[in-house]
Design a protein around this nucleic acid. Sequence first.
DNA 1: TATTGTTATACTCTATAACTATA
DNA 2: TATAGTTATAGAGTATAACAATA
Lengths: 152, 152
Amino acid sequence: MAGDGTRSFGVLTEMSGFLLSMAQAHVYRMDEQLEALEGLSTAQLSVLTVIHENPGIRHGEVAEMLVIKLAYMTKLLKGFESSGWVERQSDPADRRAIHLSLTPEGKAVVGRTLPRLLAHDAERPNGLTPREIGQLKRLLTKYLGLPERDEG
Amino acid sequence: MAGDGTRSFGVLTEMSGFLLSMAQAHVYRMDEQLEALEGLSTAQLSVLTVIHENPGIRHGEVAEMLVIKLAYMTKLLKGFESSGWVERQSDPADRRAIHLSLTPEGKAVVGRTLPRLLAHDAERPNGLTPREIGQLKRLLTKYLGLPERDEG
DNA sequence: TATTGTTATACTCTATAACTATA
DNA sequence: TATAGTTATAGAGTATAACAATA
């Protein structure tokens, strides 16, 4: 922060939105150096993971789950297809829809990189104790309306 | 989410980084409709607030505090200058440095819009109780290594 | 008419690097 | 040599809208 050490955020730090944005920036900054993902970004790996977890999921469903714009999903999926990681299958009952699944190569990529990201996430430096990290994850899960996972 | 209602994020939800990213996306989505900021984005208002709170702060210090790239800060500040909200003053002791402060108009804009953003932030829908929001803010503050504010 | 997905454009912000002017 | 800030370019991702195919 430099200067005289008295720099202040004022009331910004009273807003959950500001704090979440700053925390995300912190995560982004830590993750950008991560070379264990074979060139994948965390966002890309999230998409592959969701397809892996939900074989046959539709294009638009993935976009909605991950809050990614449909128009941008199209671009991402094109890349995954040309990498040979994702297959599309059009629905015979509704031929507008496209169902997605991972190829064996796609599954292998997720199998290699996702555990590395998990480990990295658990070790990413922050000011919290392991117990507090657990609290934070529980609160964020509820914040987002996601189903709770019963931790060990 | 549509489909059969059994869509899963798999282990993604075990990662604080993923949850923070999703929460930030949620905030962004809620805030983009906010018309009370007179055309300002929340990021822009954050910059103005930090200058307001720390008159004379240097260009690069603002960028570091808010985790904004220096190159992009230059562009933002140009816009603020041409809006007549921010003034630059070069440091006579170190003529590379630029000190920033708000004009009366800049202060007026912050005075009008910041309270509206505060109110909006407190009302942004989420799955937490007010007490849990307080916990979340406290954990994020500590996560980021920011000084604690003693809440009422 | 509404919905699924595609394409294209403008815009925001990061990553990077070359550059000026100081120190 | 290093630091503060500027400028430029490439890329990720959003906002928006027009479009094709299908329902």
